[in-house]
């Protein structure tokens, strides 16, 4: 089956803005993503090595924010929702299929190594920058946060600066 076309980007952006606005109105906070992943990491560490978890400063900070279990985190529930919502949308528009997407001249192993490396950097950077594209840049813009907008400029600026060097991962020339 042919996948359905994507939504008009401005309309999608408007809807996304309304979702974000609703979230701020109800909860007083914005959307996010990397914070949910962080809870998973904290939970894994707590399960695998409780003594290490108890002795490490950063985990204890996160423990204080989510007393009981690292998994009792607002953002983790939210990203589970994101997964469900994206899956439903994909099913409706016939876009769900197992595949490895990559640039035209890229081998599968290269793509996987690049994906892992990119994830690693993004994960690390999101902790240092206190949030990723969703939690810091987008939600930050909605509440006019100075730090959020700085992070947004740095993310997109950084990607543009490096785009030339990694062009072979994505395009022909």
């Amino acid at each position: 089956m042919q996948p359905k076309p994507f939504m008009n980007p401005y309309f999608a952006g408007f809807l996304l803005g309304l979702v974000l606005l609703t979230t701020i109105y109800i909860t007083g906070r914005g959307l996010g993503a990397s914070g949910g992943t962080k809870s998973v990491v904290a939970a894994l560490v707590k399960t695998i090595s409780p003594s290490h978890y108890a002795n490490t400063n950063y985990y204890q900070q996160s423990e204080a924010e989510h007393p009981g279990s690292p998994l009792k985190s607002w953002l983790l529930f939210e990203i589970i929702g994101v997964f469900i919502g994206a899956f439903v949308s994909g099913v409706i528009s016939d876009r769900v299929s197992l595949k490895l997407e990559k640039g035209p001249k890229v081998r599968n192993t290269t793509r996987i190594i690049a994906a892992i490396t990119g994830g690693l950097l993004f994960g690390f950077g999101s902790q240092l920058g206190r949030g990723c594209t969703s939690g810091s840049a987008l939600s930050g813009m909605a509440v006019m946060s100075f730090g959020g907008i700085i992070t947004m400029l740095a993310i997109f600026g950084g990607a543009y600066m490096l785009a030339y060097f990694f062009r072979k991962l994505w395009i022909n020339n």
Partner: peptide, 22 residues
């Protein structure tokens, strides 16, 4: 940390092709 974290995320974006939410 906002600036440097953002730049590292930018590198992750162009190498990995995604951000966490996407």
């Amino acid at each position: 940390s906002a600036l440097i974290g953002g730049l590292i995320m930018g590198a992750g974006f162009i190498i990995g092709g995604f951000c966490p939410g996407t």
